[in-house]
Design a protein around this nucleic acid. Structure first.
Lengths: 255, 255
DNA sequence: ACCTGAACACCGTTCAAGT
DNA sequence: ACCTGAACACCGTTCAAGT
């Protein structure tokens, strides 16, 4: 009457999940074996990142990566339990660079708005630089060490400027949600087509069925992607401003 | 000296892309052949949707679908050029239901804010009902007939309430970007883990390294997903309010 | 004309055999 | 101990052969 599924196996945590990261706090654990491997973990991740930038997440495969590294796929499986684990590491490794770029843009923000803006812009430039990484990023809630460091810095800054813990968490979450959503629907990212293609498509539609879409074809697609992002970011930042309790002096700008 | 790649083939447009939809305006074209097929296109899409809801986008495959339909994979390829095309149709078919639900919630909105709110909520309930469809939705910029109808209705409503074309387009875009981003990072969607799991993970972190994340573990994860969504939606809607030119009577709420 | 079982190609993963 | 070529399993897609 035993369960047909062996209960002892206890389902290993999915790579990239909180439980999985909890068991693997260091992004690049020290050599697990004697006789050092021909390539360090970080070298493998660097080459994997290059490859993904070139051929996209779909085009990426273990054989291709092994070839680039002059090794065999079986060797890759000695470093990582599988493709998913490798990709989770690639994403977190890149998020480390985001953290660094945010710190570079705003080493000492003087208002919450400034801190959030630097965060939004940093994430945005990362996603522009590595558009093919986006689909990998959205396949998980990033909770690796570098993702956590970004969260830590942001919440620390916001509470320093008087945001309640509740509002700091909400502002951070909402901002990142917008940034990711914007990157996904932005023309030029892996899924969507070029702006010009979409504009022509809207223009070519039947004006009887879709009068407003045809009329707004320009407005819907003409803005440079960066302008559109900036405008959307302003909307979100303004909304966050409004959520802040009023200051004594009556100003409404975020502290 | 001819190009090794046959230039005549002229790269068929990618399924789901604007060019592809342009050539296929009807979601379910009438029988292309005599002797009507055993299953209509819409029946196939309905079963495919069920299957995706059950096993997810990754688990979905052509063999499984063929089995459910008591047919062979080769037959599916007589209706669709391939898996991608089939999925593009599944997504647009579901967006038709979103349009209907938005109209049901707000048949005659009286302010722009109300129209946008109904749109956000409609999209949100769709994504909650079909979480496995989310990864498919973000793999493309939805420009099928039903996606266009939603866009058309929304922009029509906003311009009716005095939004400039520019702001109507921006408000629509920003709102959907937020909704999609929120759904993606929401615990419980395909990628992310359960709230409780993430909360415990944050709590278990080293308080020396991540003091603010540990302290804010509650705030970052305790809100019911719906509350968090509502709060984020408010932030975006408030930001849009601010972008509107002031009314004569001095009120600041969106018209 | 339409349908299908069987094959082909590709890729994640594992294993038996090398050094 | 460590590495690898070859195999296995799975799935998108196509094709030759049936009715």
């Amino acid at each position: 009457m035993a369960d047909p599924v062996p209960p002892a196996a206890a389902a290993a945590p999915a790579p990239g999940s909180p439980a999985w990261w909890a068991a693997r706090p260091a992004p690049a654990p020290p050599q697990r074996r004697r006789g050092r491997p021909s390539r360090s973990l970080d070298e493998i991740l660097a080459v994997a990142t290059e490859l993904i930038d070139e051929v996209g997440g779909d085009g990426f495969n273990m054989r291709l990566l092994a070839e680039r590294l002059n090794t065999s796929t079986a060797t890759l499986y000695r470093h990582f339990t599988g493709r998913d684990e490798l990709l989770a590491h690639v994403v977190d490794r890149l998020l480390g660079q985001v953290g660094a770029s945010v710190d570079r843009e705003a080493p000492a923000p003087t208002t919450g708005r400034e801190a959030l803006q630097a965060l939004g812009n940093g994430y945005r430039s990362f996603l522009s630089a590595h558009p093919n990484v986006l689909p990998l990023l959205v396949a998980q809630l990033p909770v690796g060490p570098n993702a956590l460091a970004i969260r830590e810095r942001a919440i620390a800054a916001l509470t320093r400027f008087g945001f309640s813990q509740q509002l700091a968490a909400r502002a951070f979450t909402t901002l990142l949600q917008y940034v990711v959503g914007a990157a996904l629907t932005q023309p030029g990212s892996p899924g969507p087509a070029e702006s010009a293609v979409i504009r022509d498509y809207y223009r070519s539609l039947d004006a009887g069925t879709y009068p407003h879409v045809v009329a707004a074809a320009e407005a819907l697609t003409s803005a440079a992607p960066d302008d559109e992002f900036r405008a959307g970011l302003e909307i979100v930042l303004d909304g966050i401003d409004r959520a802040l309790p009023p200051r004594r002096d009556g100003a409404t700008a975020a502290r």
